[in-house]
Design a protein around this nucleic acid. Structure first.
Length: 509
RNA sequence: GGGCGCGUAGCUCAAUUGGCAGAGCAGUGGCCUUUUAAGCCAUUGGUUGAAGGUUCGAGUCCUUCCGCGCUCACCA
């Protein structure tokens, strides 16, 4: 025996397992003979019930409720399709098997297979009148027990819960097993991904996959995770964005590409940040950021409608309307609105910092002017519940975006915010290789000034651009945050099946 | 990384000023051939996150550590 029970409940279950074996029952058989899901069994019965027809089914599932009586018992099993009651009578399944049920050798959490004819109990519940009961999988650890009471008005009152966030995330399998609401979140997530793909496919984009392990990271402002290829003696980085690879494909004559995949950022964890997260990026040739705005509105609103059935959703007590057009506002106006400071009136870092502090706003020491401007957005972000497109960002924090023709300090970039969350970022992409190289160099200088490691310059990306890159608009979006909106989740961890947690520690030594 | 809060039975939670560690569900033993939060009777289960300290006495107070939550910071 490798595993040792850690408490009385597990010890008892282990004894029951051995009891089943000694009764000649394989608690983990290889073969299953399911003929109907629980939902199919109910539907099959209901179609023939009026005519007095009989339906025999074999259904499988986990025991989620038991009511054991002296000679007749009721159990509910649950499978992926729903719940179904088993009506188990000693006369029908025999003394020996009934005793196993009664002695709880077969109990909550176990998987079973039941064969019998469909019937209605005295109280009207569609059930299986079980003639044969087979153990499919014995559960050795007890799941939390949750009971539900259906009230007269049809609402379901719940007794007992499995709600400790740490345990729910660490043992997501148990969370999913007992909390159907959590299962639903990840159906919403799957539908979201499908809806996004469908929109982009219909728009003629090509779905591609680019390297996750990259010799040079780029395309975003973030610290990377570093790893190493042993045989090649090469350090590699887990990507922080897809951007530079996808734009190489613009050079390669695809008119539109997109990728949905994982990015990794070696930064703080928060309600809105997980070290690995799902990003959607697309690039389309021959469009600018105004056309990307239109695409963003249609992409997100169509996904909302496909996933939730409506472009209006409830999020954390607010009603959000995804229907285009979204409010479009300049970064200058929205930050002025929420900080009382007009950054255009303070064109250098020192002056802007002083102005912000005079208003009681946070202004980081040593931050560049662009950085201070970007930080001003933090005051506006929580207020942007309805979709907002914030346009025209400072050049020095946007090294991949094209400068506005009429203002060399601003670039053609927008971010959009929904539900108080930053959801996406987009711009008219630089396609002038010499401009791009200079921007990289300028950025490296800023980094050096800020005592940060210089961001590596991706020479191969510049080489690609020198072959000629069509004008194009690019777009990036945090898919997990979109799922937060669609599933009404306050926390990104709820939108991730297995969110990052610190290693489960014991005592400090 | 900083601040604040939390950690008690398998799950969800109590425990007065520092004074016998408890409840419900689950489990165990009974009764029960149409229950559905089934019910009734009896009952088991604890290194109170870990290690130290103060005290006659610590779940409670102090220190350190671990983990989680909120928040701030970090985040071209």
């Amino acid at each position: 025996m490798v595993w040792e029970p850690s408490n009385q409940l597990e010890a008892e279950r282990l004894e029951k397992l051995q009891h089943l074996r000694s009764a000649g029952i394989d608690p983990y058989p290889n073969r299953v003979k399911r003929t109907h899901t629980t939902a199919e069994a109910v539907a099959a019965f209901e179609t023939v019930e009026a005519a007095g027809g009989a339906v025999t089914v074999t259904v499988c599932g986990r025991i989620v409720r038991r009511n054991i009586k002296g000679k007749v018992s009721f159990m509910h099993i649950e499978d992926g399709a729903g719940r179904l009651q088993l009506f188990v009578r000693v006369d029908s399944i025999g003394e020996a098997m009934y005793t196993l049920v009664k002695e709880k050798a077969i109990e909550l959490g176990d998987f079973v297979q039941a064969t019998g004819t469909m019937m209605r109990t005295k109280t009207g519940e569609v059930s299986v009148n079980v003639g044969e009961l087979v153990v499919l999988a014995k559960a050795l650890s007890p799941l939390p027990v949750i009971k539900q009471q259906t009230l007269d008005d049809g609402t379901v009152k719940q007794y007992g819960e499995f709600s400790d966030p740490e345990e729910r995330y660490r043992q997501r399998y148990a969370d999913l097993a007992v909390n159907p609401d959590v299962r639903e979140i990840f159906r919403i997530r799957a539908r979201t991904l499908a809806a996004l793909r469908r929109f982009l496919d219909d728009e003629g984009f090509l779905e591609v996959e680019t390297p996750i392990l990259q010799p040079i990271y780029g395309g975003a402002a973030a610290r990377p995770f570093v790893t190493h290829h042993n045989q090649l003696h090469q350090d590699l980085y887990l990507r922080i964005s897809f951007e530079l690879y996808l734009k190489r494909l613009m050079v390669g004559m695809y008119d539109g590409v997109y990728e949905i995949g994982r990015d990794f950022r070696n930064e703080g964890v928060s309600r809105k940040h997980n070290p690995e997260f799902t990003q959607l990026e697309f690039y389309k040739a021959y469009i600018d950021y105004y056309e990307v705005m239109d695409l963003a509105e249609r992409l997100v609103s169509s996904a909302a409608e496909r996933v939730t059935g409506s472009t209006r959703i409830a999020y954390q007590g607010h009603e959000i309307d995804f229907a285009p057009p979204w409010r479009r506002v300049t970064l200058r106006d929205i930050t002025l609105e929420h900080t009382g400071v007009d950054y255009m009136a303070h064109p250098d870092a020192e002056g802007l910092r002083a102005a912000l502090r005079a208003k009681g706003r946070h202004a980081a020491d040593g931050a560049t002017w662009g950085r201070l401007v970007n930080d001003m957005l933090d005051y506006a972000e929580p207020h942007m519940m309805q979709p907002h497109i914030v346009i025209d960002y400072p050049r020095d924090i946007s090294p991949l975006a094209k400068v506005k023709p009429d203002d060399s300090q601003l670039v053609e970039r927008f971010e959009f915010f929904i539900g108080g969350l930053e959801i996406g970022n987009a711009f008219t992409e630089i396609n002038d290789p010499l401009d791009q190289e200079q921007r990289f160099i300028d950025m490296g200088r800023l980094y050096a000034a800020g005592d940060e490691d210089a961001h590596p310059i991706d020479e191969d990306y510049l080489r690609a651009m020198r072959y000629g890159m069509p004008p194009n608009g690019g777009f990036g979006m945090g898919v997990d945050r979109l799922v937060m909106l669609f599933a009404d989740l306050p926390n990104i961890r709820e939108a991730l099946l297995f969110p990052h947690l610190r290693e489960a520690g014991d005592a400090g030594e």
